[in-house]
Design a protein around this nucleic acid. Structure first.
Lengths: 351, 351
DNA sequence: TTGAAAGCGATACCAT
DNA sequence: ATGGTATCGCTTTCAA
């Protein structure tokens, strides 16, 4: 049964035999190569179609020497995998990566964040985009050692050592600048007690942002007010907000670095008897498009998944196809100021 | 340069030469196969490591005869691709598919919904999950013709014809039953003027649900109140709601079949001066976990992306690995009744 | 114009 | 215990 099914699969030689020509002729006819007479070409095509012949993809790949497949791995929650399913940031990033890859003729493989050691090396990839690598991330080193071009961040590349100069490319964010931009903006809007919700995640984004927050507070002699969530989740997020707002001297500004639905957050704050932006200024790090449709519209900090993905893919594809190109791209996050963080009484126009 | 780089890639024979043994011995030593003396094995491993040898994934695949790669294609918005990036349903579905695949040792390739004809056939896949196939979807037929197992829905399989009995498996929803369950529930809660927002999408879900709505209205001699969105998007969605609520005799219940953020929708309705559930009962087809945290919590209709994905992958993997198994699975959508659609005055417990 | 043969790189069989 | 050799299915070079 299984045997007969395997044999049922029509190969190139079968077509050649049936058409009474050689493998070469069949290959050329089907690929539009060579300079065959139109009659032969058509005949071969007829026979191939009749037999239901489809070329074996793997064999062509081996012959071609490349697979036109890019890997994507989101490493932020590498220990509690897949929680990022609900996070708009990762969802948009992988989707944007896929779209960018397709525009270059590449497919995208979603890589495991866990699993047997090295299992990712079994995948026939031309390049890999490792998002939010953890410290000492083995994945980056493994791929570079295997000679597979990698896009990640500068820290991961420098840790990986050899191979990085040749095949490593980077996409970095100015996390420090982004965080300062948020805090400075809130301070300018009158905030003096800024509270933050972040995650105890391994990713650069959280670690750097939290670090910057502490620095920023220290520079001003202010007490940090921060809740670190061990994992994302609506309930945890809302609980953290309640906890922060319940302080004896409540904060006058809130920054959420963990993704949360802006309208839900606004509603929760409202139910706690606080008003945005009058009692509380609000800035959310989120990619949720709903943020601009709430009342008031919510100021957001975006890490530009679309642009990041395109840059990463361009970098990767340039390297794979042997074109010269940049070694990396530095991005600044995009702070979209809306009414939720406006100086009370001086709200920007809606929208 | 390119030449030297290609040659720089260490192959199995290079290791064999360097270690002074044959290719077989290297292969066995590295794969833990054969019965080599521990000394030889260790020596070969040393040499391999020293040379930085990594096996060529494509070559192993060709040899193995399978790739352990599954394709996923979401076809709903095949003409306006990638708009589904923001839709929690597809995001969760692809993520769940990836997780299920990984648990079987398979990777997942995100397939293009557009692009050169047949381009998907160039990918070395062991199986494919075609979500929401369009009418006469060529993708399903192409893969089946190529002998690649496919999971899709029964309609797509029957249209594809030959090859479907052998390699076709299906996952279907009782869309009709789901829609009726929603409308019956709302009617029981007192609704007499149910309005619907749906999409002019090609997917079964929208077409069937809209059809059922019209049938259901006709059976009761009611006038359908429906807005069909040409594409998803926050703005279009909210506009549709405004339009429906602005009717001379406004609806007393609203069903959204296009994904929308429940807290944002609630807020919008509130701003239009209506109260949920007192003036308006609300049911949303959405996978957004925020729905249960709003005030009032929103009744949702879920199409179980997690369970669907797992079923699809199980079906696919059983077929690929030659195990007997079901030919398909029929799912019922999951209606989670919450306060937003409760009989006014008789609200269920919060949560 | 056509076809034979040599790869692509790794693995499995079967001698030794 | 080890190594030669055929094989996976296709593309490409080169000779006829």
């Amino acid at each position: 049964m299984s045997q007969s099914e395997r044999n049922a699969r029509v190969r190139l030689v079968d077509v050649a035999r049936a058409a009474g020509v050689s493998k070469t002729t069949v290959s050329d006819a089907l690929n539009g190569a060579g300079r065959l007479p139109a009659a032969t070409r058509e005949h071969v095509r007829q026979v191939a179609r009749g037999l239901g012949y489809r070329p074996n993809a793997t064999a062509r790949l081996l012959r071609r020497g490349h697979t036109r497949l890019l890997g994507v791995a989101a490493r932020e929650y590498v220990d509690t995998p897949w929680v990022y399913a609900d996070l708009a940031y990762f969802s948009q990033l992988t989707t944007a990566t896929t779209r960018a890859a397709l525009s270059h003729g590449y497919g995208v493989v979603l890589l495991p964040t866990s699993g047997p050691e090295d299992c990712w090396l079994d995948m026939p990839l031309d390049g890999v985009f490792v998002i939010d690598p953890v410290a000492g991330d083995p994945m980056v080193g493994d791929f570079l050692a295997a000679g597979v071009p990698v896009v990640s961040d500068r820290r991961a590349l420098s840790e990986a050592g050899s191979g990085a100069r040749e095949n490593g490319r980077w996409v970095d964010f100015d996390y420090d600048g982004a965080a300062r931009q948020v805090f400075d903006h809130l301070e300018a809007a009158g905030a003096r007690r800024i509270a933050v919700v972040a995650a105890t995640a391994t990713a650069c984004f959280h670690q750097r942002s939290v670090g910057t927050y502490h620095d920023w507070c220290a520079e001003r002699g202010r007490e940090p007010r921060i809740v670190l969530l061990p994992s994302p989740g609506v309930q945890q997020m809302l609980d953290a907000v309640r906890e922060l707002l319940a302080a004896d001297v409540p904060p006058d500004a809130l920054v959420t670095l963990v993704e949360v639905s802006p309208p839900l957050l606004l509603d929760t704050i409202r139910r706690l008897g606080r008003s945005v932006p009058d009692d509380l200024l609000l800035v959310c790090a989120t990619e949720d498009p709903a943020a601009s449709y709430t009342d008031p519209p919510v100021t957001t900090l975006s890490f530009l998944p679309g642009e990041t993905a395109r840059a990463a893919v361009d970098l990767l594809v340039d390297r794979i196809e042997g074109r010269a190109g940049d070694h990396g791209r530095l991005f600044s996050a995009d702070l979209r100021i809306r009414s939720s963080s406006a100086f009370p009484g001086r709200r920007p126009a809606l929208g």
